[in-house]
Simulated scan of single mutants.
Amino acid sequence: MAYPPWLDPYDAEPFILFSTSHIVSISVITALIVLMFLLRHHLRSWSERARRILRIVLACIMFACEIVLQLWYVYGGIWSLQTSLPLELCSLSLLLSALLLLTRSRLLHSALLFAGIAGALMAILTPNLGYGYAHFRFIQFFVAHACIILALLYMTWVEQLRPSWRSVAGSMIFVNVAALIVYVVDVMLDANYMFLRHKPSTPSVLDMLGPYPMYILGEEILALVLFSLMYILLFAIPDRLKHRVKKGKSSAV
């Protein structure tokens, strides 16, 4: 069967880490994050109906990312229980973040905020990806991971679901519960979802965390450090600075 070049699962241009297309993708995603931050007050001023429509549209895009990926697996004859189920951390974050957009659940937000953003950022910087631009899989990969970050930041900046230290704990619990369930599935299917049985074949941050199974413990420590730093730098420090400014203004009056 002859496949169009942009859909071919067997003969496609390979992905090259930090190639021009990779750097452009990182730059576009960064620009979207900055744009959402700059527009957060404007978006917050929209009516509840308008914001609900925006959340639904973004959630539909996120669900579509997973659906078209599964269809591509089937179309290319490469779907399998060992590699195609949505059991990677970012796949779980994608689907649950879409559900968060629809439900505005504080529990989901707390569980996903740091795990979803950190996982998606790691994936964007060091993708476990075999297809270069402009293959379907390249585009789907970066769109899906960008949506995870944008959805979680939207719920934080616009819908104002504010995190706390409990969110750090919630994200750690989410990662570990997900890993435990996925590991059982890995053993049953002889699979390697979430890289719980060996490292990926492509370069990744796991290469710096030692051999199996020590890199799993390294992941735990790295996750706790990253989640804590994200909370301190993005929320705790800005909130304290705002409090001091308000206190200073009150004293001046």
Rank of each mutant, 00 (worst) to 15 (best):
S164Q: 03
L85T: 09
R162W: 15
L107H: 03
R49K: 14
V68A: 00
C147M: 13
R137Q: 11
A151W: 07
Y75M: 02
I149K: 10
S47F: 07
F136H: 11
S105T: 06
H135P: 12
M155F: 00
L95K: 03
R162Y: 11
L108N: 04
L96S: 12
S97G: 03
I56Y: 11
L94S: 13
L89F: 12
L153W: 13
P163A: 10
M62Q: 14
S45N: 12
L94D: 12
I53V: 14
I78H: 06
F141D: 03
R52A: 13
V158R: 04
H109I: 02
L100A: 14
S84D: 07
W165E: 01
A118I: 12
L96C: 08
L125T: 14
R52K: 14
G132C: 09
E66V: 06
H41C: 03
L102D: 08
A50R: 15
L108V: 05
L153M: 10
G130R: 01
E88C: 00
R137I: 10
W157V: 04
V57S: 11
Y73C: 06
A123F: 08
I67V: 15
I67H: 01
V168Q: 01
P163Q: 11
G132D: 05
T103N: 07
L125D: 02
L69P: 00
A111V: 02
L121D: 02
G132N: 07
L92H: 04
W165I: 06
V57W: 04
R166N: 15
W165H: 00
F142I: 06
A144Y: 01
A64I: 14
L161T: 04
A144V: 03
I67D: 08
S110T: 10
L112G: 05
L152Q: 07
L100I: 02
P86V: 09
E88Q: 15
E48W: 05
A59G: 11
T103C: 03
W46A: 10
F114D: 05
W157G: 08
E48F: 09
A118S: 14
I149G: 07
L121H: 00
R44D: 04
Y75E: 09
V74Q: 13
F141K: 11
L89Q: 05
W157D: 01
A146Q: 10
H145D: 06
I56K: 10
S105F: 05
Q160F: 01
S80D: 06
F142R: 10
F142A: 07
Y133T: 08
L101S: 03
L108M: 07
I148H: 02
V74P: 02
I56E: 10
H41F: 07
A59D: 08
I124C: 08
